[in-house]
């Protein structure tokens, strides 16, 4: 998680207007979900991968590693869809008999599973593209421009800022506990973890108190107003992202017409 953040800051696409990146990623996400087609999803995945790796300069190994993260969940989910039980043996491509019924994989199940798998991978790649090229601060600025409620944005900003402080504190406490053999066996491990968690809560509470005092000292009046550096964009910059997505829509419509939604 912390790594993603670092890569976002060093991405070559960081200077690109965040709204453009958001438009691109969200449109592609929407098209991928709507089309429900394997080729379109694969294309989305490839486009996002290309943009992240070649345009953004994110190492290919990192991108693949991140794409592998959801795979384990996905495989379990997909398996439950692909494998069905039925009394009729004929609908299965292959099956085994068990408990007086047949368990196996049907063509329809296989097709659904493949659709789901690639749809999910395509969608995840869109989010990774955004996360690996756009720091949280920029994203929040865009959301603010899009009139997302202020309270939610302030919360997002504060949570993002203090996740790092919280992790650091947890890490320090953990180290201090381990160096006094707090995690020697399972029992002491659980005890230490309980202590760590409760301490973390108390620290967080104290920290929020201090933060409030510090904000008050700088004239806090209920809203975290800050000055944002505007990105200069021109509407022509949005032509490319929109065109790519229109092409995807076109492809999806063609596929639907000629293959009847099998692919």
């Amino acid at each position: 998680m912390i790594n993603i953040d670092k890569y976002a800051y060093s991405s070559k696409l960081k200077q690109t207007a965040p709204l453009k990146k958001l438009t691109f990623a969200m449109l592609a996400l929407g098209v991928g979900l709507w089309a429900d087609s394997v080729p379109v999803s694969v294309l989305v995945l490839l486009i996002m991968g290309y943009c992240t790796i070649y345009k953004g300069g994110t190492p290919i190994s990192l991108f693949i590693k991140l794409m592998l993260v959801p795979i384990s969940f996905l495989i379990i989910g997909v398996l439950t869809i692909a494998i069905n039980a039925s009394g009729n043996k004929d609908i299965f491509l292959f099956s085994i008999a068990a408990w007086g019924t047949h368990i196996g994989v049907s063509q329809l199940g296989m097709q659904q599973a493949a659709h789901l798998f690639f749809k999910a991978m395509g969608a995840v790649s869109c989010l990774y593209f955004l996360a690996l090229s756009t720091p949280m601060v920029d994203l929040l600025a865009v959301l603010r421009k899009l009139k997302v409620p202020k309270l939610m944005l302030e919360l997002m900003g504060l949570i993002y800022r203090f996740i790092f402080v919280l992790l650091e504190t947890a890490d320090t406490i953990h180290t201090a506990q381990s160096s006094r053999l707090g995690y020697l066996n399972l029992t002491s491990g659980y005890c230490s973890l309980v202590a760590l968690t409760s301490t973390l809560f108390i620290r967080a509470y104290k920290r929020s108190d201090e933060l409030y005092t510090a904000l008050e000292a700088r004239g806090y009046d209920g809203e975290l107003n800050v000055l944002e550096e505007p990105y200069k964009t021109h509407w022509t910059e949005y032509i490319a992202p929109v065109m790519i997505n229109l092409a995807l829509v076109g492809l999806a419509l063609l596929l639907k017409q000629y293959t009847g939604g099998v692919l």
């Binding site: 904000l215 004239g219 800050v226």
Partner: peptide, 25 residues
Amino acid sequence: IVFQDPDSQLFSASVYQDISFGAVN
């Protein structure tokens, strides 16, 4: 006032935005 622990004073993830907070207020 500048507080002892900067982590309890800096609320924004962006240096620029954090510095601007007091002035915007």
